[in-house]
Design a protein around this nucleic acid. Structure first.
Length: 353
DNA sequence: GTCCAGCGTT
DNA sequence: AACGCTGGAC
């Protein structure tokens, strides 16, 4: 049996009974699709009912105030969806005589309707042959066909949209679109899909190659997490104080220096920073900035500052991982690259000037 | 507490 | 490429 027929057969047996599946009215389907963007069915369902009760037609929607729309939207998140809906309802009344558009090329021009939603409304309401490509479709196709192109990359989107439209079941686009999305939502789930009862598992690339947990591939967004680590270089005779980094953080079992970490960029001349240094290193401690660096890891952007510290005091009993080492020994210790770079600059190049 | 899912706009 | 929100899984 074909991929498409397997999905449709599965759907006819397993589909959830959802209210927007009993209509081909474009306005009602639009309500459901906007509400279900970035929203799970269980959360969106009561909102769909509430909106349909308050605004049985697009005329009722357009006549409402934006404040009333947003009040009804309260708790659903991404409030621009509600604002865009209100604007679109008024455009439909003004430019389409209150008849909600049902063709893709008209729908795509409306506020809050992108490629996915235009395909969904057009296929469900008028049977137009447009393949829906939502998160469920990306997942089903990536797993079944073994596609590892990142789904959130420009090339990945082209690839998946092209494949989805090739696969579209032209005899009944609406039925097929519903089938593949529902299959992704409740059978081919993101986490722990039940492949043991999947009718497609024998032909599924991911299942046959033990890749269900790695497909689809998604590019990780560059992390916004910033860390600010202020290092203090303590020297005595020909030795320097180092610290072995412990479990539970980056750079486990590599060596760096005693540090004070903050959540924001500190002003090194502020009294607060001076006070914290004195609390940590003693009242006579003083410090001079030597270097500042930025280091990028997969999930973190680390802002480092290095200070030379004078007249410090340490409670060595509580700092077992602290060690005095010679420069020769230091060079033998494993260090994060950014620390090693600093060491080279500070203890060698800098000192020779 | 942290991570992740999920479309459209700018 | 960044941003908008919430709920659910872990």
């Amino acid at each position: 049996m074909t991929f498409q027929n397997e999905l449709i057969n599965w759907y006819l047996v397993n589909k959830r009974d959802l209210p927007w599946r009993h209509t081909n009215d474009a306005y009602t389907i639009w309500l459901s699709e906007i509400i279900l963007q970035q929203t799970r069915v269980e959360q969106g369902l009561p909102y769909f009912n509430k909106f349909l009760e308050n605004f049985p037609t697009v005329l009722d929607f357009a006549a409402a105030t934006e404040a009333r729309v947003l009040k009804l939207w309260q708790g659903l998140g991404y409030y621009s969806r509600g604002r865009n809906m209100h604007a679109t309802a008024q455009i439909v009344v003004r430019d389409f005589n209150g008849i909600f558009p049902y063709l893709h090329d008209e729908l795509i021009k409306l506020k809050g309707i992108g490629e996915y939603t235009a395909a969904a409304i057009s296929s469900f309401s008028s049977g137009e042959a447009r393949a829906v490509v939502d998160g469920n479709v990306f997942r089903v196709l990536a797993r079944f066909y073994g596609i590892d192109t990142p789904i959130n990359s420009p090339s990945g989107k082209k690839e998946f949209f092209a494949l989805a439209n090739e696969l579209l079941y032209k005899a009944d686009p609406a039925l097929y679109n519903q089938s593949i999305m529902e299959f992704g939502a409740i059978q081919c789930k993101p986490k722990s899909p039940n492949c043991g009862i999947c009718p497609l598992s024998q032909q599924c690339f991911a299942f046959n190659n033990n890749m269900v947990n790695v497909l689809p591939v998604k590019l990780k967004k560059a992390s916004q997490k910033h860390r600010f680590i202020n290092y203090f270089i303590c020297e005595s005779d020909d030795q320097v104080l180092v610290i072995e980094r412990q479990a539970g953080d980056i750079w486990q079992h590599l060596y760096d220096f005693p540090s004070i970490e903050t959540h924001t960029q500190i002003d090194i001349y502020s009294p607060e920073f001076a006070l914290e240094v004195k609390e940590t290193f003693g009242n006579d401690a003083s410090f001079i900035l030597q270097s500042a660096k930025r280091h990028i890891l997969t999930h973190q952007i680390i802002h480092l500052q290095f200070f030379a510290l004078k007249n410090y005091i340490f409670n060595f009993n509580k700092q077992k991982e602290l060690n005095w080492v010679s420069l020769v020994k230091l060079d033998e210790l494993p260090q994060p690259k950014v620390i090693h770079d600093f060491v080279q600059e500070y203890f060698y190049k800098h000192k020779m000037e």
